[in-house]
Structure formats: structure tokens, C-alpha cells
Amino acid sequence: MKKFGVGIIVGVVATVATGVGAFLGFKQKVVKPIEDEEAKFDATRIQSARKAHQAHNARY
């Protein structure tokens, strides 16, 4: 009975570790590139808005 309990504990720990590893891998491969792309898009959008605003307020 002792081996059975140890086996259950080891199995649960291994399953949790696998789930955490899968989550972190998914986040690194899928979510982070999307967030980086959105941040770059926002920075470009802000810069474009500043240039457009400045172009319309230029004094000759």
C-alpha cells in the first residue's frame, strides 16, 4: 500500500509539472510574440499620430 501512495503522489506531481511546462511553452511561443507585435503596432500608431498632428500645426 505504501508503494501505491508514493506512485499516486509521483504521478500527480509529474502531471502538474507537465501542465505547467505546457502552459509556459504555449505562452512563450504564442502569446508573447502577439503581445510584442501589438506593442510595436501601438508605438507606431502613437508616433504616426504625433507626426500627423505636427504636420497640421506647422507654422511657415
Rank of each mutant, 00 (worst) to 15 (best):
I8T: 01
I46T: 05
K51D: 07
I9F: 06
T18K: 08
K32E: 09
K3W: 11
A22T: 12
K2A: 11
G5N: 06
A52H: 15
R59D: 07
N57E: 12
G25C: 11
Q54N: 12
H56N: 12
G7I: 00
V13A: 02
K2H: 08
H56I: 15
V6L: 08
I9L: 01
A39D: 05
H53W: 15
R45L: 06
F4E: 14
R50K: 14
T18D: 00
I34Y: 03
S48D: 03
H56G: 10
H53E: 15
A22K: 10
V20F: 13
G25I: 12
A14M: 14
A39M: 05
G19F: 07
A17V: 14
G11W: 01
I46P: 00
V16P: 00
F26M: 15
G5T: 05
A55P: 01
A22I: 07
K3Y: 04
Q54S: 11
N57C: 04
T15R: 06
S48C: 10
E38N: 13
K2I: 11
K27Q: 13
K51E: 13
K3H: 10
Q47A: 04
Q47N: 03
G25A: 13
G19N: 03
G11V: 00
A52L: 14
G19V: 04
Q47F: 05
Y60L: 14
R45Y: 13
A49M: 12
F26R: 13
Q47E: 09
G25T: 10
F26H: 15
K40P: 00
A39R: 14
R50C: 04
V13H: 02
A22C: 12
P33N: 05
A43E: 10
H56W: 07
R50F: 10
A14V: 03
K2E: 08
A52S: 15
Q47P: 01
V20P: 01
F23A: 11
D42M: 10
S48I: 08
V12I: 04
N57R: 08
G25S: 04
E37M: 06
D42I: 03
G25E: 14
E38K: 10
A55R: 14
A43T: 09
L24M: 10
Y60Q: 13
M1V: 14
A22Q: 07
K51M: 11
Y60P: 15
H53R: 15
A14I: 08
G7D: 06
Q28E: 11
E37L: 05
Q28T: 07
A49Q: 15
I46D: 02
G5E: 06
A43Q: 06
G25P: 03
L24N: 06
I34F: 02
R50S: 12
Q28K: 14
F4C: 08
A43F: 05
V10P: 00
V13N: 00
I8N: 01
R45Q: 07
I9P: 00
M1P: 10
V30N: 11
Y60C: 11
F23I: 13
